[in-house]
Nucleic acid binder design. Structure first.
Lengths: 244, 244
DNA sequence: GCAAGCATTTCTGTATACAGAAATACTGAT
DNA sequence: ATCAGTATTTCTGTATACAGAAATGCTTGC
């Protein structure tokens, strides 16, 4: 693997997992020492992260991990619903029905299995990701898929602010199943509406369950020799890319 | 100005103006010679362009100016309508009425002035850009604005494939005026609908008036000492950021 | 004459050196 | 004691050198 990719992957992972919280200042020399590569690939990684919006160039010196908090969730979900509703509509028109009937069946089943807790959770997360992937593919729009991809990066970060509870997971599975069914049926209006409903529920769950306060003030990370693997951040769900 | 910004601005301008057509391969050494800076800032510029989607890393060697043609216009406008309709809705809720009543007045006036041709065209382009800006601002959503910004880069490139005619410009001005009025009135549904109508008309005009064939096959640019300023590309409207 | 293998060239990826700018720390004066 | 001015340090931005990989072209065998 190239050194710049290594640096990029390490930093990106650290930011998404809140090991590098918002406001952390990243200096090239320190990172090149910590990651064991020279400044050139570090610069490349930081440029890529800034283009993604995970970091922002500081006025004078260095870059900072970009701010994200509950204040951003409303804006994030406004964009999300615009993109996902349109994606669902397009998918309903262009889908292969068999694929989405099958997803509907599996999601409905996963919703049932979520009564007993832990083992079914991962398989549901996988299904949710697969539904997203299939919708993106069925929509057949490269630019829309790209916009969703760059949005989801921020959603991963914000999702760490809340904790899933089993009840919400069951409801989310049902909502996902409804979306899959509407797309399978080729009903664009219903697919869009089901997506709107699902996102509204997700947003309210996120806001309700996020009364736990999280440290978001600027702070410097310590300098371990190896890549940081401890989890000083708040506990979060293991499925970083789920859709609930 | 920093050398990397200079390289980025020069390359970006060359790509948007079709001086560097899709498929052109960009090699670092050649560019550093042509632009008079070293490879390091050239690399940085290319990375930024690739993040924007204007170039794509070639499998083995170098980067290529990304493909764009009429085949992409449908996808581009699907995303565009998703984003701009939502932006119009949000703007209708959060706007300052006076601003959009004033824009409506000016746009209606510009539509009238477009009877006599040339001098009014630039002022209309300016108004269209200002409407976009005000809508983005009124929508008050940083992530949505960012998504629109990165989309508009591609729209600039595709717009060069067609030529505006005065009749379409007058219609477009009227449609813009209708959007501004709906937002001023605080009517989200009408604002969204007016945007949908406008974009549909724009798309059909673009497809209809683009029967002129344009060379899109891969080709290498010649190596002038100074930055390329000649316009070997097809003629296009001067307003690179208009909205019709 | 054509194809396969090898040599050469060229380009990318990375490291490092150097210059300029910005922030910090220190010193002196009021 | 505090503030201002200066000196120092540190970090970024750029250039360049070097190594490895990929593509090109040449040579040789069939």
């Amino acid at each position: 693997m190239r050194a710049s990719e290594k640096a990029y992957a390490a930093l990106r992972s650290d930011i998404l997992s809140w090991r590098l919280p918002p406001g952390t200042v990243l200096t090239e020399v320190e990172l090149s020492a910590r990651l064991g590569v020279s400044r050139t690939p570090v610069r490349e990684a930081l440029a890529k992260l800034s283009a993604e919006g995970l970091t922002e160039p500081q006025s004078g010196r260095g870059v900072v991990v970009s701010e994200i908090s509950l204040d951003h969730v409303d804006e994030l979900f406004e964009l999300r619903s615009a993109l996902e509703c349109r994606a669902a509509e397009l998918a309903a028109v262009r889908r292969n029905p068999a694929v989405f009937f099958e997803l509907h069946r599996q999601l409905a089943n996963a919703g049932e299995l979520l009564r007993e807790n832990d083992p079914a959770r991962d398989s549901y997360y996988r299904l949710a990701v697969e539904l997203d992937t299939e919708i993106d593919g069925a929509a057949g729009n490269h630019y829309l898929a790209q916009a969703l991809k760059s949005l989801r990066v921020h959603l991963v970060r914000v999702r760490r602010l809340s904790k899933d509870n089993p009840g919400r997971l069951r409801d989310a599975a049902r909502e996902h199943a409804a979306i899959a069914l509407a797309i399978a049926n080729g009903n664009a209006a219903v697919a869009s509406a089901a997506t709107t409903v699902h996102l509204d529920n997700s947003l309210r769950h996120l806001m309700d369950s996020s009364l736990v306060s999280v440290a978001t003030s600027p702070q410097q990370i310590e300098h371990p020799q190896a890549a940081p693997s401890g989890s000083p951040g708040p506990p979060g769900p293991p499925g970083l890319a789920s859709k609930n």
